[in-house]
Amino acid sequence: MSENSADRLDVVLLKAGRTKIRYTGELLDDDGTRVEVRAPWAGDGVRDFGFVRFEPGDVFTEYYWRDRWYAIKEVRSATGALKGWYCDITRPAVLPHARTRSTGGTPVGPELIVEDLDLDLWVSADGTDVRRLDEDEFADSGLARTDPEAAAAARSALDELESLARGGDFTTLLV
Rank of each mutant, 00 (worst) to 15 (best):
S2T: 09
E3D: 15
N4W: 11
N4F: 10
A6D: 15
A6P: 12
A6N: 12
L9H: 05
V12C: 13
L14T: 06
K15D: 09
G17W: 06
R18Y: 09
I21K: 10
R22P: 04
T24M: 12
T24N: 09
G25Y: 01
L27K: 01
L27F: 06
D29R: 08
D29S: 11
G32D: 03
T33H: 08
R34G: 02
R34F: 06
V35L: 05
V35P: 05
A39C: 08
R47G: 05
F51I: 06
R53I: 10
R53G: 08
E55D: 12
E55Y: 05
G57Q: 11
G57C: 08
V59F: 08
V59P: 01
T61D: 07
Y63K: 00
W65P: 03
W65N: 01
R68L: 06
W69P: 00
I72Q: 05
K73Q: 12
E74I: 02
E74W: 05
E74M: 09
E74F: 05
V75Y: 04
R76W: 01
A78G: 11
T79K: 10
T79R: 11
T79W: 11
A81L: 12
L82Q: 05
L82C: 07
K83T: 06
W85G: 00
Y86N: 03
C87F: 01
I89E: 01
I89M: 02
P92R: 00
P92S: 03
A93M: 03
A93Y: 00
V94L: 13
A98K: 12
R99F: 13
R101C: 09
S102Q: 11
S102H: 12
S102K: 10
T103V: 10
G105K: 04
T106H: 15
V108E: 15
P110A: 11
P110E: 15
P110N: 12
E111N: 14
V114S: 11
E115G: 07
E115Y: 14
E115C: 05
D116H: 02
D116P: 07
L119M: 13
L121W: 00
W122H: 05
V123N: 02
A125T: 04
A125S: 13
G127S: 13
D129N: 14
V130E: 02
E135S: 12
D136S: 13
A139I: 13
A139Y: 14
S141K: 05
S141N: 10
G142N: 09
L143A: 03
L143I: 15
A144H: 15
D147W: 06
E149W: 10
E149L: 12
A150N: 09
A154G: 05
S156Q: 15
L158G: 08
D159W: 06
L161D: 01
R166L: 09
G167K: 04
G167C: 07
G167Q: 10
G168C: 01
D169C: 08
